[in-house]
Amino acid sequence: MTSPNGTTNSSGPRKARLSREVVLSAALELVDAEGLEALTMRRLGQELGRDPMSLYRYAANRAALLDGVTERVLNELAIFVDDRDWQAQLRRIGHDLRLLALRHPNVVPLLVTRPLSTPLGLRPLGTLRPLEQILALLIAAGFSPADALHVYRAYYGFLYGHILNELQEYIVDPDENEAVLRLGLHRLPAKEFPHLRALGPVLAEYDGDVELDQGLSILLSGLATQLSGPPQQPLG
């Protein structure tokens, strides 16, 4: 096509300029749509309309690409270190992390297991920032550095356990009216699993948001008690 000034322009669509952000955003979209197994340099190159070799400028290999996707997701998690209400902060972060996991369920295995394969100091900086920021929040609240680390581990252990449990909730027959049948609990021997069968209605009404908040209340109240220290003994 020739423009009015005599220059020739391509009639095809212009490709977006590549950047690390563009590459990682496309990688995350691919994982969200098709799972972690779909993410390869070749497939990502196809999605971006580029030679896969051009992507190595932004990620040295597939492992680096997975790390980048993890960072990209964790960057969506806001932590306000200057907020002195540490309990409210941890409660909000917990709910935000749950929503993040529900938006990107295929990335959850990366968030939970990928850090375990890499020594702490060699992990991408973006994956370490939540740890650093929560440590700062807890230390400012009065926890010793060592206690703050213990709190972080207990807190994230609970959060990831809850998230994995919620994502794995399984309904055998969603159209069945009876909770025991809907969950497939009728397959369990009644004499061996009386409590589990009796809890059918409760299990069927599982609300991840409410369940998370109840768990956080238990955890945070215990941490607050620890921070306040043992009760003072009366003198005399």
Score class of each variant (00 low, 15 high):
L183C: 08
L183E: 06
R98S: 05
T7F: 12
P189H: 04
A146S: 11
A27R: 06
S117H: 12
T225W: 12
I163F: 04
P130D: 01
L167D: 00
E178L: 14
G229V: 10
V31E: 09
Q232W: 07
G126V: 11
L138N: 01
L39P: 08
D147W: 01
L36Q: 10
G68S: 05
L131N: 02
L131M: 07
L131W: 13
D82H: 13
G35W: 08
T70N: 02
L235P: 05
S25L: 11
N177H: 03
V210G: 00
L24K: 03
S19F: 14
A148R: 02
N106K: 08
H95I: 15
L48Y: 06
R17N: 09
R123Y: 06
L97S: 09
A26S: 12
G142Y: 04
L90D: 07
L138G: 00
A136H: 12
E132C: 01
F158W: 06
V151N: 04
G184N: 13
P105N: 08
E205G: 13
D209V: 15
F158D: 06
F158C: 01
L138T: 01
P119F: 03
E169M: 10
E166Y: 06
A16P: 15
L203R: 11
L111N: 04
V107T: 08
L185A: 11
S3I: 02
N177D: 10
R91E: 15
P52R: 02
G94S: 11
R153E: 01
N5C: 13
V112Q: 02
L164C: 11
L131R: 11
T7H: 11
